[in-house]
Design a protein around this nucleic acid. Structure first.
Lengths: 128, 128
DNA sequence: TCAGATAGGGATAAATTAGTCCCCTATTGC
DNA sequence: GCAATAGGGGACTAATTTATCCCTATCTGA
C-alpha cells in the first residue's frame, strides 16, 4: 500500500475537495453508484477504460472518505453493493453541475483538447 | 516537454472536464484570476504551496485550453496579465459550487481526511 | 473436472504530475 | 559590476497515480 511522503495542504475548501475527489474515476463511480450500478462488476462494465484493480482502490478511498458504504452479502458467489452515504448524496448535484458544464461546452472542449493532442506546433495562426 | 503515451478517453463530459481541469492548482488559478490577481507573481503569492514552475505550466495549459488568455505588456521589467476567457468565466460559478460544497462539509471532510493520514485502523465503530 | 462469475489484493511497472535547480532577458538602483 | 525585479524555461528528480499480471476462494453449469 502506498504511503504519502508529503503532507497535503488543507487550507481551503478546494484542498479538501481535492483530497476526496481527485482520482481519475471517482466522479464516475459516485455517479454510477447513484444511478443504481452498485455492484463492483457492474461498475467495471460501466467504466471499461479503467482497470479492475484501480476501481477497487478508488472505491476503497471513497469508502474511507465516507462517500460510499460497502455492504457485503455473505453469499456465494460473493455479492457486494456500494451505496452513497448522506455525504455522498450531497455530491450528486455537484457532479451534475460539472457534467452540465462539460456537456454545454462539449464542442469547444473537444476542439481545444484535440489541438493539444496533435500539436506538431507547425502552423500557429492563432492571432485572434 | 512531456508527451503523452496514451490516448485520453473522451467519451463523456466528465472525461472532457478532466482533460482541462485535472491539475492540482488549476481551479485555484482560475478562481484567483477571476478575483483580480492576474499577474504571475501575484498568483504565486496567493498559492505559496505551488512551485513557480508548476504554476507556469498549468497556466500554459489553461491558456492552451482557452480558459485564460495571456497578455504581455512590452515593458521592462516585463508585465504579464492573465484574464479569463468567456469560456473560463463560465467556470467560475461551477468552481463556486465546488467550493461551497467543500465549505459546507468542511468538518466532515477534515475528519475523514485526517483519519486516512493517521489510520492505524483500530477502532472501527462506524455501525451507523 | 474445468471454465466462468464474483470479489479482492500483493508485487511491480508504466505513465503522469509535481517539484527542484539553475540559467536567460533587460532595466533600474547602488 | 552586482543585486533585485519580472517572467520564462530546460534538465532532471521525486512523488503520485494508474495499469498490468497473477493468485486466492467458492459455487454453478457444461
Amino acid at each position: 500500500m502506498y504511503v504519502r511522503k508529503t503532507t497535503p495542504n488543507l487550507n481551503c475548501g478546494l484542498d479538501l475537495l481535492g483530497e476526496v475527489l481527485y482520482g481519475k474515476w471517482k466522479l464516475r463511480l459516485l455517479w454510477f453508484i447513484n444511478e443504481g450500478h452498485q455492484r463492483p462488476s457492474q461498475l467495471q462494465r460501466k467504466i471499461p477504460g479503467a482497470a479492475r484493480r484501480v476501481l477497487n482502490i478508488q472505491l476503497k478511498e471513497l469508502e474511507d472518505h465516507e462517500l460510499v458504504t460497502r455492504k457485503i452479502y455473505p453469499v456465494v458467489p460473493p455479492k457486494v453493493e456500494y451505496s452513497l452515504t448522506e455525504l455522498g448524496k450531497t455530491l450528486i448535484p455537484v457532479i451534475a453541475v460539472l457534467g452540465q458544464w462539460a456537456d454545454t461546452h462539449e464542442d469547444h472542449l473537444r476542439n481545444v483538447i484535440s489541438k493539444q493532442t496533435v500539436s506538431s506546433g507547425v502552423d500557429d495562426t492563432s492571432d485572434q
